[in-house]
Design a protein around this nucleic acid. Structure first.
Lengths: 136, 136
DNA sequence: ATAATCCCTCTAGCAGCTATAGCTTCAAGA
DNA sequence: TCTTGAAGCTATAGCTGCTAGAGGGATTAT
């Protein structure tokens, strides 16, 4: 049995965030001490670790609810989990592609050695989209 | 002189977003018609295009305020603009790097042909961070 | 004149936290 | 046992960058 501060330290999830997850229904309301403070068990630690890891991989709170539900039922089929992961993967790839276009553009406009705004490629490009090489 | 709807169509920025930008001080409050409707000029169009393009490149509202300020003063030195662009570039690159790690991890755990949760790599990995190959 | 379409302001909501205020409880040392 | 300082409690508001809705007024085409 340990306090919310302990749990926070062990998982790396900030205290208000833990309370927020509880409010959102991601973690069950834990037992309380005589003085109404939260007391967590090993189970709570596992569950929060699962959540933290899922968040780190970019799953939404809603997705995580589903994944947690699944993880509680080992005998169930897991294609839902596969679907969620596949969608996340697609999403991540799309974001990468978009960011790469941005990177190219930013790099290009950063290669400007003007000294005043009047001749600055950064400002000029922002003002005139047609100067861009890629679309975004 | 054209209406907010016209401006929206010409720039691709949604109407509530235009009003939001006005509220945030990115664009000046435009003239009004007799009936209190916003009427924009060519200048307003240019400014909004600048904003839209900057947002598309990922600059924050605050950054854009600075860039707009600069763009109004062609005689000023432009290293501030360069700094902002450089920081954006760094940020974009960091995000790309992070997303690539996520991509690898998601791909790895998606390569799972189990049928039930009990043996599913997705669920298992989420539950146990130490199964990950990269950090995130 | 009238109907369809636009526009107005104000307020609230989204995600995923984070911060603050004002209070209570806990744990460790004297 | 008492005290003190850290840690915890709830409730509410704020962050970014929009977006949606309610309940009205303005404009425009016929």
């Amino acid at each position: 049995m340990f306090s919310i501060g302990e749990l926070s330290k062990r998982t790396g999830v900030k205290i208000p965030t833990i309370r927020y997850y509880e409010q959102m229904g991601l973690i069950d309301a834990p037992e309380r001490s005589g003085g109404n403070q939260r007391r967590y068990s090993q189970d709570g630690l596992k569950r929060l670790s699962f959540i933290r890891h899922s968040r780190a991989l970019g799953f939404s709170i809603e997705d995580i609810k589903g994944l947690l539900e699944l993880s509680q039922h080992p005998e169930k089929p897991c294609h839902d989990a596969h679907n969620l992961a596949a969608r996340r993967l697609e999403d991540v790839r799309a974001r990468i592609a978009k960011l790469r276009r941005l990177e190219r553009e930013l790099k290009r406009i950063s290669d400007c050695d003007a000294n005043t705004v009047a001749h600055c490629a950064v400002i000029e490009t922002l003002a005139d989209h047609s100067l861009c090489e890629t679309d975004h």
